[in-house]
């Protein structure tokens, strides 16, 4: 019993800090969402019943952003998984200089999102960016990539994929390394082709890792913020605005803290529903048997 008390005590400081930083905000948002707290109230919270929540329900911008966020997350995570799998398979081969290759491919992931978002802005600059310069040197004319919704959206997804693909690849690579070599050899002895091995052996055994990458990346992509703030500012005309960005704008630009808190809480609840549902689906698919250890 004494030992158990000690172990609990050891966990306490970390858990308290976590509660302060993760739980308190959620409770605070819950409270704030039933108050008006904006320039009009002098930034002093005044109870306003469910007005914020009613406003949210009929706030077209919120629901448009929700759709846009979901579309962004689904597209970029799908591309990351596909690309990440390909990259993982490549890095799994016994190549020369594999360590250095892994480090270099990891670099985009290690850089600050904002920095690389600005880098992309320069690349897409009209008319001086290298992409437009290349188009001109091929005889075309400059194009303002960040002023039409379709191209902006495309490059936002591309920038996200570029940054996070290495992360997904590494996750899947970890999974590949847990597959015993003799399984593949056994299948090869039976005359299976490389494609068949991939489909019948590698992918099924990789499912827990794919599910994990999917869940983690989906959660992050649904909360996308700094990439969009810096690369497109949510524009043009709000066409790339995400929920997190909308919440941020409500707080820092419109100075409407009550409604900002409502948007954040609603975003969190939507996320929870989506991921919780996804998790349950995965579990029912029998994926909870995630291997315990990479040995």
């Amino acid at each position: 019993m004494k030992q158990r008390a000690t172990t609990l005590l050891l966990m306490l400081p970390a858990l308290l800090l976590l509660a302060a930083v993760f739980l308190y905000p959620l409770l605070r948002y819950g409270w704030l969402s039933f108050h008006a707290s904006s320039v009009l109230t002098g930034l002093v919270p005044v109870p306003n019943g469910g007005a914020n929540w009613l406003r949210l329900l009929s706030d077209a911008r919120f629901w448009t952003d929700a759709g846009q966020t979901l579309r962004f997350a689904v597209c970029s995570v799908a591309l990351e998984l596909a690309g990440g799998l390909a990259l993982a398979l490549l890095l799994h081969q016994p190549l020369q200089g594999r360590g250095a290759l892994r480090a270099l491919t990891l670099l985009p992931w290690a850089l600050p999102t904002t920095v690389m978002a600005l880098g992309w802005r320069w690349i897409l600059n009209d008319p001086h960016g290298p992409l437009n310069a290349a188009i001109r040197s091929l005889g075309g004319s400059s194009y303002a990539f960040l002023s039409t919704p379709a191209t902006t959206w495309f490059f936002v997804v591309l920038a996200d994929v570029w940054k996070t693909l290495p992360f997904v690849a590494l996750l899947l690579l970890a999974g590949l390394q847990t597959i015993p070599v003799d399984l593949e050899e056994a299948l090869r002895l039976e005359g299976a082709s490389r494609v068949q091995i991939l489909r019948r052996l590698t992918l099924p055994l990789l499912v827990p890792y794919i599910a994990l990458a999917l869940l983690f990346r989906l959660a992050q992509a649904l909360g996308v913020f700094d990439l969009i703030l810096v690369l497109s500012g949510g524009g043009p005309a709000g066409s790339t605005e995400s929920l997190a960005l909308y919440a941020y704008l409500n707080a820092m630009r419109f100075l409407d803290f009550g409604y900002a808190a409502t948007v954040m809480l609603a975003t969190f609840l939507l996320l929870l529903a989506l991921l919780g549902g996804g998790w349950l689906l995965l579990r029912r698919g029998g994926i909870e048997r995630t291997p315990d250890r990479a040995t």
């Binding site: 993760f22 905000p25 605070r28 983690f216 959660a219 909360g223 997190a244 707080a251 954040m264």
Partner: peptide, 22 residues
Amino acid sequence: VGLGLVAAAMFPTVLLFLALLE
């Protein structure tokens, strides 16, 4: 606690900034 930690690790941190700023 394990599940809570996983959930917290996945949490989009931008959603916390307002309360933290307060």
